[in-house]
Design a protein around this nucleic acid. Sequence first.
DNA 1: TAGCGTGTAGAAAGCGCTTGCTATCGCTGG
DNA 2: CCAGCGATAGCAAGCGCTTTCTACACGCTA
Lengths: 353, 353
Amino acid sequence: MTTTLADVAARARVSPATVSRVLNGNYPVAASTRERVLRAVDELDYVLNATASSLAAATSDLVGILVNDIADPFFGIMAGAAQSAIGGQEGTGRGGGEKLAVVCNTGGSPERELTYLTLLQRQRAAAVVLTGGAVEDPEHVAAVSAKLAKLSDAGTRVVLCGRPPMEGGGSAVLATLSFDNRGGGRQLAQHLLELGHRRIGYVAGPEERTTTRHRLEGHLKALDAAGIKDDPRLVLHGPYDRRSGYEATRELLDREPGLTAVVAANDTVALGACAAVRERGLRIPEDISVAGFDDLPFSVDAVPALTTVRLPLYEAGAWAGRLAMGAEAPPEGGVAVVRGELMARASTAAPGR
Amino acid sequence: MTTTLADVAARARVSPATVSRVLNGNYPVAASTRERVLRAVDELDYVLNATASSLAAATSDLVGILVNDIADPFFGIMAGAAQSAIGGQEGTGRGGGEKLAVVCNTGGSPERELTYLTLLQRQRAAAVVLTGGAVEDPEHVAAVSAKLAKLSDAGTRVVLCGRPPMEGGGSAVLATLSFDNRGGGRQLAQHLLELGHRRIGYVAGPEERTTTRHRLEGHLKALDAAGIKDDPRLVLHGPYDRRSGYEATRELLDREPGLTAVVAANDTVALGACAAVRERGLRIPEDISVAGFDDLPFSVDAVPALTTVRLPLYEAGAWAGRLAMGAEAPPEGGVAVVRGELMARASTAAPGR
DNA sequence: TAGCGTGTAGAAAGCGCTTGCTATCGCTGG
DNA sequence: CCAGCGATAGCAAGCGCTTTCTACACGCTA
């Protein structure tokens, strides 16, 4: 059978209570006793039963990190950073302290998001981190809101990372780190406007997500401020993947021969856009400027290096992780806006024709 | 306070045992009673306490998926597929059946791999899936082996996906799905040889990983069979990222002016290689052929479309997921070799000079 | 020398659920 | 007409830990 606390206690000739206290290290135990217990633990190769601990102590060491797309580095970087911040606290944790940070892939599906939240609620998770833009369907928003309230009531710390603050039900959320997507979109558009572009195509993300909407709003606002009126023919929606950028850009190039620049919803989409531009025999940036968003690791390596908005994904993820651990006080008001930084690189230049 | 089974039982005017049986659905309960219970569950918004269930039933609904790099789509796709296969079993699971599939990012670090395995052992995980190449350090191999044996003894199903079979200690492993990396490397090299290439550079992955070694071995074996002797100057090691491909390729181009092809450890690395080639003003494939490995989604979209070896990552991940669920019998002998398929595309052609 | 704080260890009562066994009830067949 | 049986429901004993409260030595002080 599996060895239990009692086995260890018997071998160390102490009571189970003492073993528990040695392992959790939050109660004075004489050095000699401690050592005896530790030796017994080693000899028996004992591993604490986390389910029993959780039940008895009414706490859990599980931390859930929800992501929209686990195959997308945007989420991978944030999730990895959060996981490091959470898991990397102690090295020698014999029994206590160690959290189990796990990432759950919703695939962008609202139902799966709720399913995972319920599953984590069942586990009485210590914390939950929700990353990435939210779906804007009111019904779903309400359902998530209610779920988060329950979790929060049950003592689970809820942190949002790269997601806009919840309207209303925000009291359930410990902290929100939201990206300034609007501002980033604006900066990018302004950059292109300053270079002299006037006909700018925009390949947006999926229609119903907050991230998509905010980036696009920033873009359009900047154009508007420059006196360029919104032209729906120059905006195309699609998933956040390379193919979408490729196809939408071909379409844009067809629709608008006078196009001099394409802004993509993110860097991955931008790479697809580049491919489409090149395929037409057009040069970047001489004929068409291309810009992305996020500044993923490959973007600086692209040829030509991609102009984009740098989001501190790693830093934000790590911050979220620390907040989820309760290792750090939440920002003022519970909400922090994380700004992006324009990275003007070789893929954008003054229009050449 | 949080509502418990007993609260539900009281409201439905039945015993806790009956509520438990309704929720788990593995014992006959009269339809009328069931309905009464279900209504009470709904009214009280009751959520099962998974830690208590696990403790009492000595089973867990946690399934861990370990990956080397969560920001790499190679792992993201496998993990996502496994998670779907595991989580997508039931939709309406009121109480039972639902597994919590979670991914843990080791970052390629052997210590973190072991830490996660211990954490999962503590949770008495139902299953563990290890993905991706293993580190070859004998000490670490032994430690992992021992850990897996413990897990297996405790009833955790252990599945390897995209990882070579464990030597010796394989009895702890329920099933191994290993990629035919050697065969893939060979196919790629043969393809280039048939096109007429003789001076082929190779940008390999990190030195101590099985995946790296196997792909390289296949490559060298094919060259050897064609009478081309191993030239260490044409093989460079580096991490599995774009930058590595970029830098190594610059180096190869410098070292060997007669080079006509570059094979990269994987597609991401290949993209870096392409960038380096283009930067030199060389054309792909006219001047230099480039090939990758994995056939990640972006590879077919690259310009020119990347020649590579397609690994059925999604299928393998889903298979691993089903095995981890115990939903499917393991392959004959516990080991299945998953073969890759050569995708000859536009980035390779006969050498032109 | 009696009285007491201090430092450690143990006893035991749960934590919220599952499940083997028992009890009840309405029928059916000999 | 009653033993016997199938279908349900309840009882109660844990699952392996944590933690409160209690117990026991000491070594002091008054």
